[in-house]
């Protein structure tokens, strides 16, 4: 619903002088193609490299397949190495990311809606604090977070990854902007007159209207937690708790260590490929929400 509405609005806004805008610039197209290749080339390399044996990896041309197609064997090795620890890492990552993303999106929706629709004292000041928090990169907070978590005994537990990921200042900011536009005041008033409690209004009315924004924050947090390396690196000591990023980095380290073996390298390459597949799937499945989410707040309705 909102997707179509936004799209229509954009089309209407640019519709009057559509013709000049439609002319294709070959130069721009070429530039975009170059960018496309630039971004896809590493992925292609990863795909090709994970079909090779260690020997072929270093002896054959990097951007094309070798004679031996070793992908099935590599995948099998990835999942059987060290008693199948890779599968464990992947499940850990999925667990941390899904819980963090769901929780962060819900908290951001609650907070963003609150900031947008309730004029309480200190609203502006608190929102300013949130804006300030966006400026602090989360990596910079990792060590202070560790020091706090160490005191309450949360280090080396899944909470050490999930709790810090639940708070997403940018998500809160996005949700506030989105809620301002997407939730009409009149609808809230109507619901209140009908006798609905505030939490029921949020659950049954607001959350539905906030859908696209919700999915956007969900995806942002999902990607951020999926790719998080530094926080789990310092928080976790137990290999069975590692997410896939730290696990793969450990394997990569073993490949160059004294006495290490090159046989680990195909594991790292194939493991990397497998670890991004769920993210790609999430993007493709949730793409339409993602797009409309990014456009949110761009147009004042």
């Amino acid at each position: 619903m909102t997707t179509t509405a936004t799209a229509t609005a954009v089309r209407a806004a640019s519709g009057g002088s559509a013709m000049p805008g439609r002319r294709r610039s070959p130069l721009l197209t070429l530039a975009m193609l170059a960018f496309l290749i630039y971004f896809l080339l590493p992925l292609f390399w990863l795909l090709v490299a994970s079909t090779k044996t260690t020997g072929d990896l270093f002896a054959s041309f990097g951007l094309w397949f070798a004679d031996d197609f070793a992908l099935p064997g590599n995948v099998r090795n990835v999942f059987t190495a060290e008693d199948g620890v890779y599968g464990r890492w992947l499940l850990n990552t999925a667990f941390y990311s899904l819980v963090s993303a769901g929780g962060a999106a819900l908290l951001a929706a609650l907070g963003g809606y609150g900031f947008a629709k309730f004029g309480f004292r200190g609203n502006k000041l608190l929102f300013g604090v949130v804006l300030g928090a966006i400026m602090v990169p989360s990596t910079a907070l990792a060590i202070p977070t560790y020091l706090i978590f160490a005191q309450v005994g949360l280090v080396n537990t899944p909470w050490a990854i999930i709790l810090p990921s639940l708070v997403n200042p940018f998500g809160l900011y996005l949700m506030r902007i989105y809620a301002e536009g997407a939730v009409p005041d009149s609808l809230l008033e109507a619901a209140r007159i009908d006798g609905a409690g505030e939490f029921r209004i949020f659950r049954q009315v607001v959350l539905r209207l906030l859908g696209p924004g919700f999915v956007t924050v969900l995806l942002f947090t999902l990607v951020a937690t999926w790719n998080n390396y530094f926080l789990p690196l310092i928080m976790l000591n137990n290999p069975s708790l590692y997410p896939v990023t730290v696990g793969l980095a450990n394997w990569a380290g073993q490949a160059t260590v004294a006495g290490g073996s090159g046989d680990v390298i195909p594991l790292v390459v194939t493991g990397s490929l497998l670890s991004i597949i769920p993210l790609i799937a999430a993007f493709l499945l949730l793409q339409r929400y993602w797009q409309s989410g990014l456009a949110a707040g761009g147009v004042k309705q």
Binding site: T54, G55, F58, A59, T256, A258, G259, G262, D263, I265
Partner: peptide, 9 residues
């Protein structure tokens, strides 16, 4: 040893 496992060729 490192070289022998990484430069089989």
């Amino acid at each position: 040893v490192f070289l022998s496992s990484n430069a089989e060729a």
